[in-house]
């Protein structure tokens, strides 16, 4: 059984239908990406799955039906969203941000171990752990958002546009970290404008157009597809 199985997801902002009948699944340990143009419904999908937007359709996650559950309950089930624009707590320190990631957890000793793990994955955070997060560069904030999400021991990590607003060199660094997170066996659902990078780190992908998946398959196949190349990879 899939870790996440979404059938006929529909999300609307008033009368504007942003997602209309999306089918999607992510298996345990799998990294899946959603690619598509602006306004295709990628971000909306992630927000709806996280419980931040009301949605219709059947969402099954780790044996639970998610429909209608509040966001904080969904987060406690292990479906963790790193929102677009990162959503860190700017006036808390790095350490406090990371501790907030573990807010819903009760296993204090394991939290301590995970903190060490995050610091070893992201040594830059360890260096600056007593500093105010709002003073960070975009790349550092993205690292912090990733670290904070990992502190919640996610069963499935959802990343919304992790490359947005970052310097090109920093995009490489952040995707290097995402690659390491995938290598550790964390299941991932990635939304990304930069289709090339997304298809490189993920095993499978979906192409979204007008709120529905028009193409799906293994990342290598999608990357080789002439239509995808023309539309999203900037190749002729």
């Amino acid at each position: 059984m899939s870790l996440l199985a979404v059938e006929q997801l529909r999300v609307a902002y008033g009368r504007i239908r942003a997602v209309q009948g999306l089918d999607l699944r992510v298996d345990e340990g799998e990294a899946v990406c959603l690619i598509g143009a602006n306004g295709a419904g990628k971000t909306t999908t992630l927000k709806a799955l996280a419980g931040l937007l009301p949605a219709q359709g059947a969402i099954q996650f780790d044996g639970h039906r998610l429909g209608g559950r509040p966001a904080h309950e969904i987060a406690r089930l292990g479906l963790t969203l790193v929102p677009e624009g990162r959503g860190i707590f700017p006036r808390m320190t790095v350490l406090e941000n990371l501790q907030m990631g573990a807010y819903a957890r009760r296993d204090r000793h394991a939290v301590k171990d995970d903190l060490e793990q995050v610091f070893s994955l992201l040594p830059r955070l360890a260096e600056r752990k007593t500093q105010k997060a709002g003073l960070f560069s975009g790349g550092e904030q993205q690292m912090l958002a990733l670290g904070r999400a990992l502190m919640s021991q996610p069963r499935l990590l959802m990343l919304d546009e992790p490359s947005m607003g970052l310097a090109p060199v920093m995009v490489q660094t952040v995707f290097g970290i995402i690659g390491q997170i995938i290598a550790r066996g964390v299941s991932l659902l990635l939304v990304e404008q930069n289709a090339r990078l997304a298809l490189k780190v993920c095993q499978r992908g979906y192409v979204l157009e007008h709120g529905a998946a028009t193409l799906s398959g293994p990342a290598t196949e999608l990357a080789a597809d002439p239509a995808v190349q023309a539309a999203y990879l900037g190749e002729v």
Partner: peptide, 25 residues
């Protein structure tokens, strides 16, 4: 307490707090 930390998180960013599993309501 945990409640105190949750209050600070809500003050900072309510949506992010909710996404961290804080029952903001």
């Amino acid at each position: 307490s945990r409640i105190g930390r949750a209050w600070v998180a809500i003050r900072e960013d309510e949506v992010a707090a909710e996404a961290m599993g804080v029952p903001t309501r």
